[in-house]
Design a binder for these strands. Structure first.
Length: 118
DNA sequence: GACATGACGTAAT
DNA sequence: TATTACGCCATGT
């Protein structure tokens, strides 16, 4: 089940994920694996989506829209929970300067955010 | 403590 | 490039 974000205020590892996502600058995107890696859990890519999914309903201000899958991109699991949300997310990314493919795929090489480098 | 679930990743085909 | 199979980590029951 989806755990409550409101209770994740504790020392849970989920808070680390939110912290990483907040660092994502406008016009840049990252993959779940990237966030997980920065959070210190390179094998916990699944949990990143978990945490972000809960945020969607909590109204927390986290740019979850900038977090994509490696190959699935935007139309990944969001469409499962919110088909319209996926389309809206694609529009939002385009507004930030991110070019989204017709299939919902984004060039991570071009828009991939590179932390720990500046 | 063990089993089941999940916005995923990587390797193999 | 798409599809299938397996694995990893955290949370819930």
């Amino acid at each position: 089940m989806k755990p409550d974000v409101t209770q994740t205020s504790g020392p849970s590892g989920w808070e680390a994920f939110y912290r990483i996502v907040r660092r994502i600058p406008r016009g840049k995107v990252v993959t779940y694996a990237q966030v997980a890696l920065l959070a210190g859990r390179p094998r916990a890519a699944r949990h990143v989506g978990f945490a972000l999914a809960a945020l969607r309903g909590s109204g927390t201000r986290v740019p979850w829209q900038r977090v994509l899958g490696k190959r699935s991109a935007v139309t990944a699991g969001i469409s499962i929970l919110d088909p319209m949300g996926a389309a809206a997310q694609r529009d939002l990314l385009e507004r930030e300067g991110v070019r989204v493919d017709e299939r919902g795929r984004v060039s991570l090489v071009d828009h991939g955010w590179r932390p720990r480098r500046r």
